[in-house]
Nucleic acid binder design. Structure first.
Lengths: 346, 346
DNA sequence: TTGTAAAGTGTGTTCGAGCACATTTTGTTT
DNA sequence: AAACAAAATGTGCTCGAACACACTTTACAA
């Protein structure tokens, strides 16, 4: 009933040889109309699924995939990606796939370009890339295109015909999700959006989140709220935050657009900590600690690990099974609090 | 560098034939200590990964897997499961796997047993089962064991040595998650836990959720709250709910332990709807509508689709690649509100 | 009608693991 | 030293798809 048909079966049913069936299936070589009809007749009746196992056995090329991402030493945000890559490596290690990780310095465009050059020199079959720098990304794309190297991206979107796929989140929506949670905890007063980041590379990210956040409150059109934006850099966090708190005594909530919510949480004076709602990003250890203490209310999970895993898995499945590469994979915006956090940490 | 070694390579390196290598790898037949040493020496140096593709080509048995679950006609809760099965079918259709779905009536123990009998008569290689009825499940387990049919379960846990795996959620924790969200929206007053279900089959489910919910508030030990439990059945929902609302004017929040939150939402009078926080389960269409209208605040996603998908995928990968079947897979408790719901609906 | 190129078709090998079976080596007994 | 069983080892086939190559048939010009 659910028997798997082979090329041999088709050949027998059509009264031809497997070679002819093969030519029909792959539109190669010459086949007489008579044979073509007979084979098509058979193919119409049965549901032929080529045995991928056998196909792959033959095509035993080793596929070479490079993953390019910022060195987690510079920013722990990228740490979960390593796990995602490891997961993919583990899952596919028995197949002819070779996955290689390359780090670049997220503060340096030059490092980004150089790492890409190293990878290009290796001439892999595909690349999964965190395209942090827009202009530089477009430049290296030209080279990837010339060498017919498939390029997938994750984390942030860059428009280019060369890029086959993007895996990531809708940042605008993620700002809205943060806002919806904030409006649940805080009913009136002042809300601050804080951008903390050492470099400018995340500027677009942070802006999109801010836009989404503000958009939500604009829609609500509640006059009881005022929203301010504060930009902090490593060197001035403490002083600037203190000044801000003194100036804004009616502060009820803070939305931190990066994974640095823990820094704010640990700088807030004890008595304010309980009163001010904090919402941030990413399940890094320090954030989880504050989440459990109650000094951070919600975290939004950006699931970098899964982003990279899916980016790699998509490529492997494309090579191994000829699956199509989806143009975009949008990951859900997971809402995390102290109660469900444990399920997402890995 | 990352070259894939084959048995032939090992044989050559050890100076023996592939037959001998094969015997060492599988501890079968007789091998001289000399040969064993030589081969082990080689195996120590290289990282041999048998080519799963080739292995499977030989073992081209068609594996037969049956999925048993309640008919979604009786309860739309089970509808997403169909998608999960379809996903698995799609993913594995090119392999020698035959996945068959069998429905039973969730209100009838007899139907449950009968469906199991039908499946047993087919003698599949494995079964994925929603073990709604405890006693009956244990009974059919005996038969599955005798026939060496692998049994995986999902949705609810039943303790049995025969059952190899369970995929589901931690219901106690899920109650706690609901409570944590409730305590965020409601700061004092009365909270109701409502169980709505036509049958008793979900009793354990609902109880676990209630326990978790109460447990959270007990820990908080906040005297401003009172929590009541209300059990409703299809026939008496409207009248009983109305009476309850009249009796309890200070009602601030309702936790519905089943997917029927929409029923409560649509029965609440307009003026109360805005004031009373509703938290329920499952992303079924009617719940989503209320979520978007604002009459339901949060839904907890039980991800039935993924439960079934993982249950099936685990089995297929076990048969095809010899992967171990994990004893339990606990899915995360996804918090859903109007802003992030769209990402989870499929 | 034969020659010959083109068109059409079939055969046989490959991939790596697994396993049956054939063959060789070893060890023991007479 | 021969005989022979037991132990050890090697050979060769299988799985299904892919493809090279050899072979057969057709078509048409000489």
């Amino acid at each position: 009933m659910d028997k798997k048909y082979t090329i041999k079966d088709i050949a027998k049913l059509a009264g031809v040889s497997k070679g002819t069936v093969d030519r029909v299936l792959h539109n190669r070589g010459k086949v007489s109309p008579t044979a073509l009809d007979k084979i098509n007749e058979v193919l119409k009746v049965i549901d032929y699924q080529p045995n991928l196992i056998a196909r792959n056995l033959k095509n035993n090329k080793v596929y070479h995939i490079c993953v390019l991402l910022p060195d987690p030493e510079f920013d722990p945000y990228w740490l979960p990606c390593i796990n995602g890559i490891d997961d993919a490596k583990k899952e596919f290690k028995a197949y002819n796939v070779n996955i290689e990780t390359h780090f670049f310095n997220p503060e340096s465009k030059k490092s980004f370009v150089n790492t890409n050059q190293t990878v290009i020199a290796q001439a892999p079959d595909a690349v999964l890339l965190a395209p942090l720098f827009h202009k530089e990304t477009l430049e290296v794309m030209k080279q990837y295109e010339e060498l017919n190297i498939i390029v997938n991206t994750f984390n942030n979107q860059v428009e280019s015909d060369v890029i086959k796929s993007f895996v990531g989140q809708d940042l605008h929506k993620s700002g809205r999700v943060a806002a919806s949670l904030m409006s649940l905890i805080v009913s009136e007063g002042q809300i601050a959006i804080i951008h903390i980041d050492e470099s400018v590379k995340n500027a677009v990210h942070m802006q999109e989140k801010e836009k989404g956040f503000r958009n939500y409150f604009e829609e609500k059109n509640n006059p009881n709220f005022t929203i301010n934006t504060l930009k902090l850099k490593f060197s001035n966090i403490e002083a600037k935050l203190e000044a801000f708190l003194i100036e804004n005594t009616n502060l009820k909530g803070i939305f931190i657009t990066t994974s640095k919510a823990y820094q704010i949480a640990s700088l807030l004076p004890e008595e304010k900590c309980k009163k001010i709602a904090l919402i941030g990003y990413d399940l890094i250890h320090k954030n989880i600690t504050h989440l459990n203490k109650g000094s951070i209310h919600f975290l939004i999970h950006q699931n970098q690990k899964r982003q990279v895993y899916l980016g790699v898995a998509t490529l492997v499945e494309h090579f191994l099974y000829g699956k199509e590469i989806p143009q975009t994979i949008v990951l859900p915006i997971d809402i995390i609090n102290a109660e469900n956090a444990s399920f997402y940490i890995s």
